[in-house]
């Protein structure tokens, strides 16, 4: 069952990611990204990350992507008309990227111990475990992120003013 679920949702994730890159209209890209996030949430569940799966849907798919969709609708962004003029950049970068992917995948396949397998229920990080780690070991970084968010709010408010 694990294998079937993994393959199905990995296929959905990769398909949606390709669709994100290949679609010309930003709304299609945004919805594909939501699809990627949803299938990743299922994969997190398979890896025992109950809390992270829920946060992935609530924060990523439910808040950040709503902002994206909102901005796309607000600006009424149309689809891209012409292909990029920077042909050289693309021609050099894409083969390099695929090489990187191949090398990284090779390293992952050979270096990660063969015995490591993911069994559903083998390790669970629910809200209790994550909360305990967050408010003991990681308390200072947690507080610092709240300041980061405050700065981001201020930045957004400053940028959204009329004069700039």
């Amino acid at each position: 069952m694990d294998v079937v679920l993994f393959l199905v949702f990995a296929a959905i994730a990769v398909g949606c990611a390709l669709n994100l890159v290949l679609q010309t209209h930003p709304i299609s890209s945004a919805l594909s990204l939501i699809g990627v996030m949803g299938s990743l949430a299922v994969l997190y569940l398979l890896l025992g990350g109950e809390f992270l799966a829920a946060v992935q849907l609530i924060v990523y798919a439910g808040a950040i992507m709503v902002l994206f969709v909102f901005v796309i609708m607000l600006l009424n962004a149309g689809s891209e008309k012409r292909p990029s003029k920077k042909v050289l950049r693309t021609a050099v970068a894409l083969p390099l990227l695929f090489t990187l992917a191949g090398v990284a995948a090779y390293i992952m396949a050979t270096q990660v111990p063969r015995t490591e397998a993911v069994r559903f229920g083998g390790f669970t990080a629910g809200p209790y475990e994550v909360g305990r780690a967050l408010f003991t070991t990681w308390l200072l970084p947690f507080e610092v992120t709240s300041i980061l968010i405050l700065i981001a709010i201020l930045g957004a408010v400053v940028l959204a003013r009329k004069e700039i």
Partner: peptide, 27 residues
């Protein structure tokens, strides 16, 4: 059971797709 490396390879594939999109998209 699913080998752990499959998850990591999926992660690599998604990362590279994202990086490629970063380079070829203009919006």
């Amino acid at each position: 059971e699913v080998p752990l490396s499959w998850y990591l390879i999926l992660s690599v594939i998604l990362f590279v797709i994202g990086a490629a999109g970063f380079l070829i998209r203009r919006n």
